[in-house]
Each structure stands twice: as structure tokens, then as C-alpha cells.
Design a protein around this nucleic acid. Structure first.
Length: 280
DNA sequence: CTCCAGGGCCAGC
DNA sequence: GCTGGCCATGGA
């Protein structure tokens, strides 16, 4: 087992996991188990550090996964320097948030599940999907299931997907699995500009602008993607006093305003706005 | 009971 | 190009 120790000032594991970018993690011992594709890590904090424990051969993977090469002090500073009250507040409270480098395919499937859905239910559906079609693995003596491969998913019919609670999204998921199993390689999109990437993602059945932006941000690590959902739309209207009503235009407006760091700011804002609502 | 959730598709203008 | 109805499910 490998242990990675990293200052917790800009790496708070609770904030990073609960800010809405990942659906596969659960409390474990003094921290959390974090699942990605077929891998698992145990992550917890000490007074000064965040510690990642994983298999030796996964150490590089999780270093990248938790985005440990990026300077989050600089991102935090740039957010503060915008001099916008709501952004200063949410960045200060969420300064330990990091944007994970998650698996592109898993993000695509996961954020299709997310549409017009709530986070607790999204997590449950993805968990049922993994238990049903994933591979049983063990970590630290504990069983878990990998995220299923598209090949395996492509063999299932729409009734199966409805049975795990996907509702009308069942056909979106099935058709994406068939497309990937049939040769569509999402990794081929890596070299595209964010705008080109958006176009390619939106061509997929069941993927609109919001899901494409989430996949761009969380799967392709594009800082110039600003997903607009009900929460960030509220931020726009209530805190930025915006007049636009089309979410695509709101997204464009934020990217125009914040540039390469827009996605990071979006995550601070989303996490803050949603956590406020949960406290009510 | 109604309203809502990290929305997208499709038909009709 | 834009708008509105509709789409399942379950938590609040």
C-alpha cells in the first residue's frame, strides 16, 4: 500500500467529494473510500495533511486524479481578486475543493444519469449499476464493484436500465453504451478545443449543454467550462443580477467573464449555494 | 397533496 | 432560432 501525504490547506477531502463532482465515494474509518473506474483509494485528513492510501501501482493515477500538480492557491487568489462578494465567500468556505481528473466515460454515463435528478438518487442509481454490471474487487479487505465497461453495458436492454431506476434516461444510457462498444472512443476528443469538444459531446443522444459542460470540466479538466444547472442559475439571477434566462447563454456569459478559471469558480459557487439550501 | 432535482428531446411555431 | 410539453423517480 502506498501513502501520499499532501497539505490539506487546499485539499479538503470532504469538500472535494461533497461538492457534487463525484457520485462514487462513501465514509470509511476516519475518512472516505473513493472509487473511480476499477480503482479505489482510502482518503482521510490529519491536522495538517490529507492522506491518500492506495495500491502501489495506482499511486501515479491518484496523484493525477486528485489534481495534485495544480496550484490551487493561485486559483483561490484569482477568485478572491475578482472582488465579487459571493465568489469571495464561496471560495473562502470552499478553498479545499479540488477539481478531480475523473474518467471520461464514467463522467459521461454519470452525468447523463444526473439530468433532472438529485444527487442522493444519482448516487444510488450508479451504485446499483455498478453492483449489477461491474466487477467485484477488494480494497483493504473490503468488497466494492468497478464501474461497468461499455461492452458489458451494451448487452443490456432498456428494461434493465429502467429496473435500476433510470426512468426515461434508460435509453440514453443504453445507446451511449452501444455507441462506445461499437467503437466510439471518447479519448479521441482530448485534442479538441473546449468548443469543439462541446459540439462532439452534444451530438450524443441524451447529452445537452449542461451534461457536456460537466463532462468537459470533470472528465477533460477544461477550466473554460461552466455548467449551469438550477443552482448556478440561481447564483446568476440572485447574486449576479443577470437578466438572461437561457442556460446556454448564462454559461457563455460566465466563461466570457471568468475565462480559464470559470469552471473552478463555478464549483465554489455551486457547492456554496447548494449547501446553503440544504441547511434550511 | 405538490414541488423539485447538477436537463434533454421533440414538435410546433 | 425559440418555446412549451413531456419525460420517471423518489425525497422533502
Amino acid at each position: 500500500m502506498q501513502k501520499i501525504t499532501f497539505s490539506n490547506e487546499f485539499f479538503n477531502i470532504k469538500d472535494t467529494l461533497e461538492c457534487g463532482q463525484i457520485f462514487r465515494y462513501k465514509p470509511y474509518k476516519d475518512g472516505y473510500l473513493v472509487f473511480t473506474v476499477d480503482k479505489c483509494a482510502y482518503v482521510y485528513q490529519t491536522a495538517t495533511d490529507t492522506v491518500i492510501e492506495c495500491e502501489n501501482y495506482d499511486a501515479d493515477y491518484f496523484w493525477q486524479y486528485f489534481d495534485l500538480d495544480r496550484d490551487y492557491q493561485a486559483i483561490f487568489n484569482s477568485a478572491i481578486s475578482q472582488n465579487i462578494d459571493i465568489l469571495t465567500l464561496s471560495a473562502t468556505l470552499g478553498k479545499g475543493v479540488r477539481i478531480l481528473n475523473q474518467d471520461r466515460e464514467e463522467m459521461l454515463f454519470s452525468f447523463i444519469v444526473s439530468q433532472n435528478n438529485n444527487i442522493p438518487r444519482i448516487k444510488r442509481i450508479i451504485d446499483r449499476l455498478s453492483v449489477a454490471l461491474g466487477e467485484k474487487k477488494t480494497f483493504d479487505g473490503k468488497e466494492y464493484y468497478s464501474f461497468p465497461t461499455a461492452e458489458k453495458m451494451a448487452k443490456m436492454d432498456v428494461e434493465f436500465y429502467k429496473s435500476i431506476g433510470l426512468g426515461y434516461r434508460a435509453e440514453y444510457i443504453r445507446r451511449l453504451a452501444v455507441a462506445i462498444a461499437g467503437g466510439l472512443n471518447i479519448k479521441d476528443f482530448c485534442g479538441l478545443t473546449t468548443k469543439q469538444l462541446n459540439v462532439k459531446l452534444i451530438e450524443l443522444y441524451g447529452v445537452g449543454r449542461k451534461v457536456a459542460d460537466c463532462v468537459s470540466l470533470f472528465g477533460f479538466h477544461r477550466g473554460d467550462a461552466f455548467p449551469v444547472d438550477t443552482w448556478t442559475e440561481k447564483v446568476y439571477k440572485e447574486n449576479f443580477k443577470g437578466e438572461l434566462s437561457d442556460r446556454e447563454k448564462i454559461a457563455d456569459w460566465f466563461v466570457e467573464k471568468f475565462g480559464e478559471n470559470a469552471g473552478f469558480y463555478q464549483q465554489y459557487l455551486f457547492y456554496y449555494k447548494r449547501s446553503l439550501e440544504k441547511k434550511k
